[in-house]
Each structure stands twice: as C-alpha cells, then as structure tokens.
Design a protein around this nucleic acid. Structure first.
Lengths: 317, 317
DNA sequence: CTGTTAGCGCTTTCAG
DNA sequence: CTGAAAGCGCTAACAG
C-alpha cells in the first residue's frame, strides 16, 4: 500500500505538503504540485479513505434502509440511488429492516456505527424511524409529516381515476394491499377525490379483497383499480378464472409500472414514478443536510405519469 | 462521541485496559472488566469502527457488485446476502457495474478504495472481473472456471426437461434471452442433455425468438422451455395473442421462480434456486478466503428445485 | 494483571 | 510557499 508518506520521502518534502498538493488545497507551488501529482500517478497512489475519514469525520458513505429488500421497487430505487450517489463520489451501505420497527431502528444504529454520514430510509409501513446521530432523509409519501421526498402518490391515484372516468366507467372497485401502508392510503384517497360524484366506488383490501373482486364485477362493477401491478396481476388471474375478459368486460389498472406491466397479457395500464428523479433529489437533499444546509425542495413530491396500455377500455353497454 | 479514553480516565485506568476488557481479550481481572463494561453501558459507548479498521486493516465490510441492479433476481440475492452478512457482523456496500466490463472494474476499484475486506461479484455476462487487492468470490455458474458458488443451472435445465419429457412431450422449443450469458447457456445445455433421443428440440434466442415461437407451435411443437420467468411471461402473451391456450395446447416453463410465477395465469412451472443457501455459502467462502483459508466447497454448485404448477400438462394427442 | 508507548494514514493548525 | 507537530480512536507489543 503506497501512502502519502512514501511520496513525501521519495520527493523529499513533508507529508503535509503532499496532502495539500493532492487535495488541491492551494498553498503549494504549481511546480511542486505537478511533481507530486506525477509521482503519485507513477506509484499508483490511492488515498486511504479510512484514515481520511477518521481525521475528517466524514466517510462519504450513505446508509440505505428499505423495509424489505424483496420489495419489487427496491432494485430500481437502489440502482438509481447508487448511480446518483456515485456521481457525487459517495458510497451506499445497505440495510434491511425486514419485519419490525425495532429491527428498523437496530439497522439504523448499525449503519451509524459503521460511520455513515447520512441515512436514506424508506420506512417500514406506519413507522417513523428514530435516529439523531446523523441526518436522515425519508422517502415515503406526502401525508407522512417527516417525508423528505417521494412521488405524488395521491396525484397518481387521481390520474388513474380520471382516466377511468374519462373513458366512461361509473361503477368501480378499488383494491389495496394493506391499509397500514400510508403510500397505498394516499393512492386510494387520490383516486377517490378525483372521481366525479356520479361514480360509485368501494374499497377492498388484501387477500379477502382479491377473492371478492369477481363477485363485485358480477354485481355490476366495470373497473378494478389496484394499488400495485402485482396486485393487478393477481386480480387478473381471478377474473380470468371467473371468465371475465380484460378489458372487454372489466378494465384493470396497476401502480408503479414494473417490468411485468408491459409484458403481461393484456399489457397493463398503470402509473409510473420517476424513480430516477426521486433518487437524485433524495441524495441532493441529504447531502445538503449533511453540509448543514436546508434544501428548498424538502418535503415536496414529484409528479407521477399515467401509462395507458391495453387493460383499460370503455365499458360495454 | 464517547471514546475509549473517556471511559479510561473516568475509571482511572489506561485506554489499553478498557480496550482489552471490552473486546474480551482476557488479560483483565473479572472485577475490572465488569466495572469497565458497566461504565461503558452507562455512557452509551459505541466503538468507532473507523479507528478500529484503520488499526487492524479490516473494515468488516464486503462489496457486492451486480451487473445490473435491475436484474429481477437482485433483490433476493441482495437480501439474502445482507442477512447472511449481518449474521456475521459484516456490512455490505453496493456497486452497479451497469454496462461495460470496464465499468465493472472501475466499481471494483472504488469499493476497494472504500476499504472493503472482500468482494462478492455476479459478473457482467461473459466477463471475468479483475482485482487482486482483496479476495473475490464469484457467483455465476459451473462452467465459469472462476466460479465460487452458484446454483446448478445445468441441473435445473435437466430437471425441467425431464419433467416435460415425462409427461409426454416429443417436440419442444427452447428459448433463451441472450447467448452471451453463461448462465443461460448452462441452463439450455442441461435441458438438451436430459432430453431423450426421441425428442425433437431447437433453440431460439432473444426478441426474434419470442416472435417466432407461435410459428413453431403451429408447426407442431407442444412445449416451450424458456430460461427465465419473465421470458415465459412474454411468450405467454404471444401465445395468447395467437390463440394457443396454455397448457392445453402448449406447455410453458420458466426459470428462477420469481414472484410473478405464482401469480400469473396459469401459474408457471419453473425451477427455483436456493438463493439463501447460495448467499450463505458465498459469504462463508469469502470470509474464509479473507482469513486466508481455503474452503472445501469452493466452486461447488447447489441443486435447483423443480416447481410444478399449472402451465405444463400432457400434450394433446 | 495493568500501563506505556507507538502507530495505522491522513489532515490541520501554527511556525518558519 | 513549506515543514513540524499533533491527533482522530483504537489496538498490539512490550514492560512493569
């Protein structure tokens, strides 16, 4: 391992000077700087981040905590965050808070112990992560008072409901996965608030809800709006089993625009988050917090985008 | 930040003694150890991993590099690795080698610069990661000579082919996503080697292959074996469009047992990797390498498991 | 059993 | 413009 000292003795200057030259803190003559730089190059010098971190108190590492790494959105979020972080020279340490809120706080502590400069957390449904050792950015939904950045889930719900209304549906069923999830609640209330008076709607939840969908359709509903693409796929199975064709007999929508949405049959009308923008802003805000600055966009949401495919059409009549 | 020194002066012993007591290196009287421990507790002492790492040269952090964080298997692998790592008190720093082999090597370097003790890498298709600064474990497939641990992809292919053969199919088409992938090649050669002489089979690749499937079925094929569940879902769309019912008219299989496999309609016959075991063994082997030991299971594969669902059945006569 | 000393590799005053 | 010295928090020799 070639250290700053090696370069220093090699050239015959002090370690401090090498450090200054390399980090460009000025205070060193151009010529000396050049000599130091080129020697460093030759030796293949790479700064030891640990030593630097110990001295400066900053590791350049961010912790990312997700409620369940199995969440189908995780890969995209993780990828976009890792790209956004890398662009700023930061690394990402992962943590899985699977299960309890307690576990979540444990994970936060562990990451802090490992020296992260800040934390990005997608909270466990219905919990509020606790940690004041380092800045914390929360990616959740607008109705979470501590939310730092998120997609406009309610707005997304409104988009899809308006689409369904526009093409003529007047009797719809809304299906959520878990009422504890603030995100899903927001999606649903967005749907409800966008539906005109004349639309009849009711909300179903979870497995029981999935099982009940076919019956509701039989009773007259012409569209099923779900809070996730995976849920939509399950509903599609149920409807197929019950001989209801999508979209001829029932329209069906998802949420999140996962890859399966464009690959299932029929392809799924859904609503997409701009994950890249969310990731970028999350990192942006968090780094500002780390520098001790407030960021004007804190708490603001990012618009969602309606993606119309083949699972929705006019109701028959 | 409460340091070891604080505890030392508090109690009136030296920093070294506190260190020894806390890390349980013996050499300290029971009584003193207890006093130190309880004081540490009171003060909420947490060791500074950076300082420790700088001193010992070990960070307790592993780097995980995947070719594309968007890979549908990534979440499960990442989760299982993170659990397996955590169990051993290790952290995981992520890296995305998206795109090129060059980028892959860049990422490896960056992680090493950040002080990882070892690297877990799922290589970019057809590349061999380069890094000798720290131990490296490769998760790929048996035919990769540097492979450290992986599922037995060829064995998985054999399982699925045998199933198809057992239920009476004699004319099948095999569909792969990308011939550059060693994993997919192994899956396919496993399928081929398990099919009895009397079975006619041909191999198709990529988008062109997907587009050609229906035609092959029209020409007499009664089963389509794909190398991934997502590919199977796409094929299902094509078949449905062409009015071929699954499994009545054609049987269809996937690979990997992703969550969509149990949720699509019909549910998908596929083959599952024991991701948890792979993750655990990968970490096990890597930590052995870090300790400078050889591990007997290096290079061995783990069996896959056939999951029969509703997308396969006897061919109609 | 306990303390002293030294140093991991780097940055940062403060002098020269 | 450059150098000397100190120290981040911890551990590993070596003495006592």
């Amino acid at each position: 391992m070639v250290s700053i000292k090696k370069i220093a003795t090699d050239i015959g200057v002090s370690a401090a000077t090498v450090s200054n030259a390399l980090t460009g803190k000025g205070r060193v003559s151009e010529e000396m700087t050049a000599r130091i730089r080129s020697r460093a190059q030759e030796l293949g010098y790479r700064p030891n981040n640990l030593a630097r971190a110990l001295k400066t108190g900053q590791t350049g590492i961010l912790g990312l905590v997700m409620p369940d790494l199995t969440n189908p959105l995780f890969p995209r979020i993780a990828q976009m965050l890792s790209i956004a972080a890398e662009r700023r020279g930061l690394g990402i340490l992962i943590g899985d808070s699977r299960g309890s809120a307690d576990e979540q706080n444990e994970v936060l502590k562990r990451l802090v112990d490992r020296g992260v400069d800040g934390l990005l957390v997608v909270p466990q449904k219905g919990t509020s992560p606790e940690m004041n050792a380092v800045p914390l950015a929360i990616i959740n939904t607008a109705s979470d008072p501590r939310n730092t950045v998120s997609a406009d889930h309610a707005g997304g719900g409104a988009l899809i409901a308006r689409h369904i209304s526009d093409i003529g549906h007047r009797n719809v069923v809304i299906l959520g996965g878990d009422p504890v999830s603030e995100v899903q609640q927001d999606r649903i209330s967005g749907m409800q608030s966008a539906m005109r008076q004349e639309i009849r709607s009711s909300v179903l939840w979870g497995d029981a809800g999935v099982a009940e969908v076919a019956e509701r359709v039989r009773a007259g509903a012409t569209a099923v709006l779900t809070t996730s693409d995976l849920l939509a796929l399950r509903v599609h199975s149920e409807l197929t089993r019950a001989q209801f064709s999508v979209p001829r007999r029932v329209s069906l929508t998802g949420f999140d625009n996962m890859s399966l949405a464009s690959v299932m049959h029929p392809t799924l009308t859904t609503v997409a988050q701009d994950v890249e923008a969310i990731a970028d802003r999350a990192i942006e805000i968090l780094t500002a917090m780390i520098r001790g600055q407030a960021h004007p966009d804190t708490g603001r949401t990012l618009p969602m985008r309606l993606v119309v495919r083949n699972s929705t059409s006019n109701p028959e009549i």
